[in-house]
Write a protein that binds this DNA or RNA. Sequence first.
DNA 1: GTGAAAGCGCTAACAC
DNA 2: GTGTTAGCGCTTTCAC
Lengths: 370, 370
Amino acid sequence: MAGVRLQDVAEHAGVSMKTVSNVVHAHPNVSAPMRERVQRAIDELGYRPNAIGRRLATGRTGLIALAFADVRLPYFSELANVVSKAAAATGAGYRVLLEETEGTIEGERAVLSASEAGLVDGMLLQPSQMSSREIAERHGDLPMVLLGEGPAPLSVDRVMIDNVAAATVATEHLADLGRTRIAFVGHEDASMSWTSRQRIVGYQQGLESRGLPVEHDLLIPTGAIASDEAARAVGEAIDRGIRFDALMCRDDLAAIGALRALHERGISIPDDVAVIGWDNIAFDATTFPSLSSVSPNTHELARVALEMLAERIEGYDGIGRHRLVDFELALRESAPGSLQASGAASGDASDADAAVDAGAPGSLSHSLSA
Amino acid sequence: MAGVRLQDVAEHAGVSMKTVSNVVHAHPNVSAPMRERVQRAIDELGYRPNAIGRRLATGRTGLIALAFADVRLPYFSELANVVSKAAAATGAGYRVLLEETEGTIEGERAVLSASEAGLVDGMLLQPSQMSSREIAERHGDLPMVLLGEGPAPLSVDRVMIDNVAAATVATEHLADLGRTRIAFVGHEDASMSWTSRQRIVGYQQGLESRGLPVEHDLLIPTGAIASDEAARAVGEAIDRGIRFDALMCRDDLAAIGALRALHERGISIPDDVAVIGWDNIAFDATTFPSLSSVSPNTHELARVALEMLAERIEGYDGIGRHRLVDFELALRESAPGSLQASGAASGDASDADAAVDAGAPGSLSHSLSA
DNA sequence: GTGAAAGCGCTAACAC
DNA sequence: GTGTTAGCGCTTTCAC
């Protein structure tokens, strides 16, 4: 039945609203017979507490927004899944409101400046376009934690993996496999995202640490973050005569596109060209060959982000805390290895998601600090 | 600034709350100077209307829940994207609350019986386990529209594509390609979902309509809806000596797994084995070879579902309406074709998403009614 | 055209 | 232990 109010239950049971409220909230100070009587009234009337009324009174909605570019990107859909589970497991039992920014600055602005306040208790945002300054200015007093390696003002909390370190480790792994012409694939053509920028920096560091030359020709940009774009770009590079024996990909979408371009040209993976992707999305295990990938610990990322957000919601008002979570290389057929590298920052790498297909688990540990 | 209330603005501007409210809502009956004066107060104080207060008063939250098994399944993440865009484009400008049922009956029950009422104005639910009866009983008075071919009580609205027809068309297409041993891949091992059941019925109808025998050996179940499971199952079937020259897959995940199993064994696609998937997810265009797939018109699905939901929210209380939306075969390398089949129910197949790689667009139209 | 006041459904002091 | 009451921030008749 709709429209049954606390009041109605109270009248039906012949008690006050407060008593009904106590029963609903399982308060200790209610006698057993009273509790039973009220419960019967609740059941008879089919009463459900009205969330909005409660929330007006408490000032909390129990909702948090999760905002990122596009749920269709596997990394984000997997993140949404992890975050929504972790949020539900929270003490407050948060539910997740999905917000897509489309990766545009207008979208990010819209999400931050939602004209209505109070709908959500806080926000997890993965920005990619807005400047730190704009983020700091716009978010107002909405409790917020930033996700990922994008811009982040010092005043706001943020969780990420060390992209430079991860790209370095992955590139070094390719070098250690004996590859000498390692290309980077998948960064934006025109204005590069923060993400691409950092991964390229790490790629370069990896090359340098192994004494390999950095060649501009070996940077293969794509029009957009999409596998078909990457397939086209890699195909064109090959056809243009660019030669490489390994591909460090900005993300798994780029890697999957690269796989296709290589297949089409009869290039063998990993014999002729080894490939490493990024994000360790579920598909990586079933591509042919299966795809090695940088595997961020998203469970830990979600956990830490929600913990900080909860503190902000509770009223913590200190300076922005920047946290790193760990990553590892999930090694599969496209770039097998005898060594499993991992970078750890915040302790346990509990997530056993990353199927490491080959090699002894010689764990190469990076000590990173925020 | 937080905590600026309508009241504060009213005092600051020296007017009543009603006038401020009128300005906020752009009501016509406000004199220009008055409007300007109030607007200045709003700007000076940095006032944002509080969503919860408003919603308590209006009884609407502007939120709808979208509930399905798991966002990580590409079909669902693509659906979430489409629905959230379509919802925002709605007159009411709905936002989407994500709910995952994990495909379990407990999850579906939890989503339907959320102990709090009033948080969302309505719900879009894709059930897979619950019986029609239970859905009818549990949803109470929450405006709801069911998505997909799962159970649906007559009392509740529902939108789907005709799965039997689509599976028939796809199977016939494989037969028309000259295949005679067409296997079905990807249904659950034990208790079959409604989805699998209907697709298998259509598969059988397709075989029969082309005079092909139905062999029980050619049903290849998998443990779960996941590509690695499908790769394993198809691999085992081949290794067990099952021979086929085409695969009709329950979904694209199964198809992608099948692709891998075939590759591993050096079986050529589509020459030795043609493959058709289902859902037309983004990856289909970049697998190698690219994947033909049954392509439901999800834009139309979302549009129709939201339209019906809006009507329910407005108070419409008639019997459940069951609507079909159209689908087409997106033909790519894994099962090319000279003929593009499509089933149409509700008019325009506006979505040009489906890249049909080959053949003259001889549109084979199915007339289907609810 | 503008203002006053009564809720919307619930919570939480505070009194009994 | 249980009841009373005053809000939470907004909308919305209904007067003026």
